[in-house]
């Protein structure tokens, strides 16, 4: 049996039951097969931690792929998070086993504390500019950039996965409220398109005065 397949008798549920939304210009889905593990260490041990992770420890604000621990998110000078394809609820132990030396590295499985929402599509940046107080211009927040922020009164981690794709990592308990906020803005942006298309300046020389 694969390492991450549970064999106990309890059934897992996700915050949104794997909900998806696709309007054509924006797609949102709940990422359910991903584990989140934080690695905490002393800031002075970054070199050591980097070596243990195979020479890959992202700077704060950026992320990178690691063969040992999935995608590493640089969130604090003394903390990095791993995003790993897995449904195991105790991936901290799995990663700990993979690391050659865990002295000074403290792992905490946070998979169940958060919900990951993948947001993509042509108008996803228009949606995010009504939710996210960060500057998401590519010159400032390029692909693989990551940051902690606050959206709809809630602490959120935002990761850019493509020009028009992001992952929003939000506390699990308030996911329904968070999703409602996103869906509301998605609907607003979609319905505004025909309204805004009328907003082109009329050249007075073409008016039939």
């Amino acid at each position: 049996m694969p390492e991450h397949m549970p064999n106990h008798a309890l059934q897992p549920t996700t915050a949104l039951g794997g909900r998806t939304l696709n309007t054509g210009s924006v797609s949102i889905y709940e990422v359910t097969e991903r584990a989140l593990v934080s690695l905490a260490f002393k800031a002075s041990d970054r070199e050591h931690v980097s070596a243990v992770l195979g020479g890959s420890l992202p700077a704060v604000g950026s992320s990178l792929a690691s063969h040992l621990a999935g995608r590493l998110l640089g969130l604090q000078i003394d903390q990095t998070w791993c995003l790993i394809e897995s449904t195991d609820s105790a991936m901290d132990k799995v990663i700990a086993r993979k690391l050659s030396d865990t002295r000074g590295i403290y792992l905490t499985d946070q998979s169940d504390a958060w919900t990951i929402l993948a947001l993509s599509g042509d108008t996803c940046r228009q949606v995010l500019e009504r939710l996210c107080p960060l500057d998401l211009d590519e010159s400032v927040f390029p692909i693989d950039a990551v940051a902690r922020t606050v959206i709809e009164h809630t602490g959120v981690i935002i990761l850019r996965t493509g020009r028009d794709s992001f992952e929003l990592i939000t506390p699990r308990s308030s996911t329904a409220s968070f999703m409602h906020a996103i869906e509301t803005v998605v609907e607003h942006v979609r319905n505004e398109i025909p309204v805004r298309s009328q907003d082109r300046q009329q050249d007075p020389t073409t008016s039939n005065a």
């Binding site: 934080s38 905490a40 002393k42 169940d112 504390a113």
Partner: peptide, 13 residues
């Protein structure tokens, strides 16, 4: 101090 904090309120039912 070598001490690290993580809120796990939501991680555990």
């Amino acid at each position: 101090l070598d001490v690290h904090l993580v809120s796990t309120t939501e991680a555990w039912a």
